[in-house]
């Protein structure tokens, strides 16, 4: 079970959180200006990377705040946690093998 550091509440068990999928997908300012294909890309398509991945989590059972997590989908290593609106940290070394 993951141990996720809520930017406010600190480290808590994964059971207190919900994952909101890939981060940094902004809602288009004018959806009507988009073609069906472009809209479908926004709506349905996600990278689902093997390795480092930026995703959104919410501390459902805690402070109910949303934030971003940089997680390696292979090792489950969490390399960064940062607030909504913040820029993602520079991509860490690929699937670093160092001790957590």
């Amino acid at each position: 079970m993951l141990l996720i550091s809520c930017p406010w509440c600190g480290a808590r068990d994964e059971t207190e959180f919900s994952c909101g999928g890939e981060a940094h997908i902004a809602r288009p300012a004018d959806p009507n200006a988009l073609s069906d294909a472009e809209w479908a890309d926004y709506l349905f398509m996600r990278k689902n990377t093997r390795g480092p991945y930026l995703e959104r989590w919410v501390h459902t059972a805690g402070c109910r705040r949303w934030f971003n997590v940089a997680r390696d989908t292979v090792t489950n290593e969490i390399t960064a946690v940062y607030k909504m609106g913040a820029k993602p940290p520079r991509a860490r070394a690929k699937a670093s093998r160092r001790k957590r």
Partner: peptide, 13 residues
């Protein structure tokens, strides 16, 4: 409730 909070916090702060 979660849906409204999500939009407020992530898209419409």
């Amino acid at each position: 409730m979660g849906w409204l909070e999500e939009w407020l916090q992530t898209e419409w702060p």
